[in-house]
């Protein structure tokens, strides 16, 4: 479903060139649960941004569902982000002035879904995350774990092909972190494709495939045993 061919990302800072990704080739199939691991500065976030269409590669090809999206413009990329990806961030990234429900409705607003259907879908997804009682709360009235569950609901509500999670447990205590990882495991067992970015091996273990990246290159790509 996702296929990267000889992908490189080079940042120019004045006269210096910083190679963030160096000639990466990678395929991820539907239904996989992949963890991308690496120390900070290894290029894993850049890789996630490119996979998630938030950024574009300097060289190489990116095929999504068999379509070459390397040359897509900003608007087309926005549409791909809206339809194909659901993002879960380390810092939750909820809009503080909106309620949980309104936050979850946002992707549907940009997808052009009508108000009634939008509401139903958002409520359904929030209930799935066990937040039925909290839909009218603002992020500041929710615990970290609850906020991250709202964020997951927002990522799921538009039925994306891939869920991209960037250090989803980074800002949580270990108990909430485990709960969140259980949710990802559950989502995977229901057939969702999940890509997890982390530097924590305990988090990475929830995945079924572990890709390690260092200095912009893939150094290992292996199956992980069921926990």
């Amino acid at each position: 479903m996702i296929r990267l061919e000889n992908l490189s990302k080079i940042y120019k800072m004045g006269d210096n060139k910083v190679v963030a990704l160096n000639n990466i080739s990678l395929s991820i199939n539907k239904g996989e649960f992949v963890a991308i691991m690496g120390p900070s500065g290894s290029g894993k976030s850049t890789l996630m941004n490119i996979i998630g269409c938030l950024d574009v590669a300097t060289e190489g090809k990116y095929y999504l569902d068999g379509r070459d999206i390397t040359s897509y413009n900003q608007n087309q990329l926005a549409e791909v982000r809206n339809k194909k990806f659901g993002f879960v961030f380390q810092g939750f990234n909820l809009l503080p002035k909106l309620t949980a429900l309104e936050n979850v409705e946002l992707p549907l607003i940009y997808a052009g879904v009508g108000a009634k259907k939008r509401r139903e879908e958002a409520i359904r997804t929030l209930e799935m995350m066990g937040l039925k009682e909290r839909i009218h709360h603002r992020p500041s009235e929710l615990s970290g774990g609850q906020q991250q569950r709202v964020a997951i609901a927002r990522a799921l509500v538009n039925h994306p092909s891939v869920i991209l999670a960037d250090e989803p447990t980074g800002n949580l205590d270990s108990k909430s972190g485990m709960e969140i990882m259980q949710i990802f495991k559950e989502l995977h067992s229901r057939g969702n494709t999940i890509i997890l970015i982390t530097h924590d091996i305990n988090v990475a273990r929830y995945a079924r495939r572990l890709i390690t990246i260092r200095d912009g290159q893939i150094v290992s790509d292996e199956e992980v045993e069921m926990q």
């Binding site: 938030l54 608007n75 926005a78 549409e79 339809k83 990234n93």
Partner: peptide, 16 residues
């Protein structure tokens, strides 16, 4: 700025 970033990540187009 951050709100704009979030909205864009979620799929807001330039026009939106």
């Amino acid at each position: 700025t951050r709100e704009i970033g979030i909205r864009k990540a979620i799929g807001a187009k330039r026009r939106d």
